[in-house]
Nucleic acid binder design. Structure first.
Lengths: 358, 358
DNA sequence: ATGTTTCGTTAATACGTATTAGAACCTTGA
DNA sequence: TCAAGGTTCTAATACGTATTAACGAAACAT
């Protein structure tokens, strides 16, 4: 029994109220209000009586009941596996949210942010909590680290969802960014400027996004005739001072860093460069793989904008919503996958190396 | 019949599946899974069989069904009457969203953004569409212009909601900002600096936020012994050049503007000041009533930050969520209302007037 | 006069869970 | 042996809408 009823407040009208008022059955009311073919075929006079009654009572369908009765409810979910939800402007994933919200609104879809669930799930270490997303017609996911099992179950169940970011597992629809080409291009550009000793600093963990960048960096090096054997270096953000010193001794003139949600690699390196008193690009060229448009940070030792490429996050958000709606509409077949190109960015941290004066 | 079932995919488990597996009734399953007193009182052996079966099947309750059966579903709604939803950083209401999201997540609540509905409702000019918010346990509203009727109905129905921004209507719970005191303070400060001819430029429409600022401005003037008769001026953003010229002829040395979601008054005045070739605060002091922390713009004719006061939007968002949860929990009585103080801001656009050299 | 359509409407049921009254069975005490 | 009381579970129903099979009445054809 609802609060309202107990308090004796006038209960909100339902179809059965309309039915009683118009002297028809509840089923008739439903048919007419939904405007189905069957409903339209009814006697004009009956239709008008019902519509009139609905109007008088101020009837509005209960979205919950509508949904339960197995229609859709025009709600899309958004679930993130990051530790923090990207409402904060400083968050590197923030533009994704903007894109998603934009497109969803344009399509008349409401958006459920499963941040409460996600946080509770993280606290309780409960991977099954992801299933709560079923409250929506379909769901978008993102985050670097995703528990496999719950996702697999959603696939099995045929629940429509789209992952934002490339995924290796087959059968998972996604909208990603083409990190491979973009990263290769960045390295090729550095090589064209004359850099021969380059390093790629990546996060220590496993994530498709990092793997793709690594692949692109290596490919770019090979294409430019650079030996990739000492190219890739992993970090958890510590001991970067040592690393940086060693690099300089080895004659490194350019470093490529990846940008992730934590920003561990980037922040660590930036601090190390500052501590070493280096200036970019005078002493070292610095390229950033994947800052998002608008949230691009400023580089150490000078404060210029980073060179590298931008991830089209906003566009990814929008595309993901479109894809999801197609899935929900039942356009099956191959799981849809899309890779968006990244925009190269000229930045003040990239220049030709100083001529060696050893 | 759902997509999944038609396709022959294994359907997601429900309580009746667990019941069959454990050899009990659906009701028993519900009692045990909910952990109600009645459920806890059941035989230990039965409980374990049921819990085991639920685990094996990977059961997760359907939030829609849960909700229909009149429990809660840990989802709060957010509905805005603005034309655009404030996901965009440039939007002046953006910090509210951040605050709401933050607190909701902290409380383990998911958030439904009713932006699709709101936009569809605006297009179709359908005030009744607001009722869609009933899909949530409760809802937050904000926006300058709110259709009265649907809100009144929600009150009647006893649906829990909180308005963000002060409301005149009795019976509506809100979290607002104390524009009156803050505006009075701003005017008092101008007067203390020596300004005698001051104007308050407000939007042309009716909104409690504007009315409050006007009240504060007038009160501040009175307190400082300034004649309020020519103080208040309304604008729709046009003809500001003329207005500005007249003001200068009248000896005006300070202008107070209100900041709203459209920013019509502020933008218009800023442009007019630029066109007139004036510099702030040299030629004119300019105070802003209600920029939000972090989105503060830069003033014309110089580019300094505006002086005036800040609206604690983020805090309002957080407080609104807390209030809403109290309402949902059933803490009735007087509808809760709260006014948050606004932080005064020293800005580069406010200074003592030049000594008159007529 | 008897079957056949067509029209307008409804009864019945599904959706998945929550809740309450009470059934079935067992134990205990006289 | 029977009543009283306790334990453990279930039948029934509610929540509000969507959907489908089918029914009565009327019109039409044979």
């Amino acid at each position: 029994m609802t609060e309202a009823r107990r308090a004796g407040v006038r209960r909100r009208p339902r179809q059965s109220d309309i039915a009683r008022m118009a002297g028809v059955s509840q089923a008739t009311v439903s048919l007419i209000l939904r405007g189905t073919p069957a409903g339209m075929a009814l006697a004009r006079e009956t239709r008008q009586r019902v519509l009139r009654a609905a109007e008088d009572l101020g009837y509005v369908p209960d979205p919950v009941a509508t949904r339960l009765a197995s229609a859709s409810n025009a709600m899309l979910g958004l679930y993130t596996f990051s530790t923090t939800f990207p409402t904060d402007v400083a968050h590197s994933y923030y533009p994704i949210l903007v894109g998603v919200e934009e497109e969803a609104a344009a399509q008349g879809q409401d958006l459920i942010l499963f941040t409460g669930s996600a946080r509770a799930a993280a606290r309780a270490d409960d991977p099954a909590a992801v299933r709560r997303v079923r409250a929506a017609d379909g769901c978008l996911f993102f985050g670097r680290h995703v528990p496999d099992e719950p996702i697999r179950r959603l696939v099995e169940d045929g629940f429509p969802f789209v992952y934002i970011g490339r995924r290796d597992e087959p059968g998972i629809p996604y909208v990603g960014a083409d990190y491979v080409s973009a990263s290769a291009q960045v390295v090729a550009r550095l090589a064209a400027l004359g850099h021969r000793e380059i390093r790629y600093l990546r996060e220590h963990d496993q994530a498709p996004a990092s793997a793709d960048r690594e692949e692109g960096v290596v490919r770019g090096a090979r294409t430019s005739g650079i030996d990739p054997s000492r190219l890739v270096v992993r970090t958890d953000g510590s001991d970067l001072d040592d690393l940086l010193r060693r690099w300089l001794e080895e004659g490194v003139t350019a470093v490529v860093v990846e940008q992730t949600d934590t920003g561990a690699a980037l922040d660590g390196l930036g601090a190390a460069v500052d501590r070493a008193g280096l200036r970019c690009p005078r002493d070292l060229s610095l390229a950033l793989l994947g800052a998002s448009t608008g949230t691009r940070g400023h580089a150490p030792g000078g404060g210029a904008a980073y060179g590298g490429f931008d991830v089209p996050m906003r566009a990814m958000g929008r595309d993901a919503v479109r894809l999801l709606l197609e899935l929900i509409a039942g356009a099956h077949g191959e799981p849809p996958r899309r890779l968006l190109p990244c925009e190269p960015v000229e930045g003040g941290t990239v220049a030709a190396p100083r001529t060696r004066d050893t």
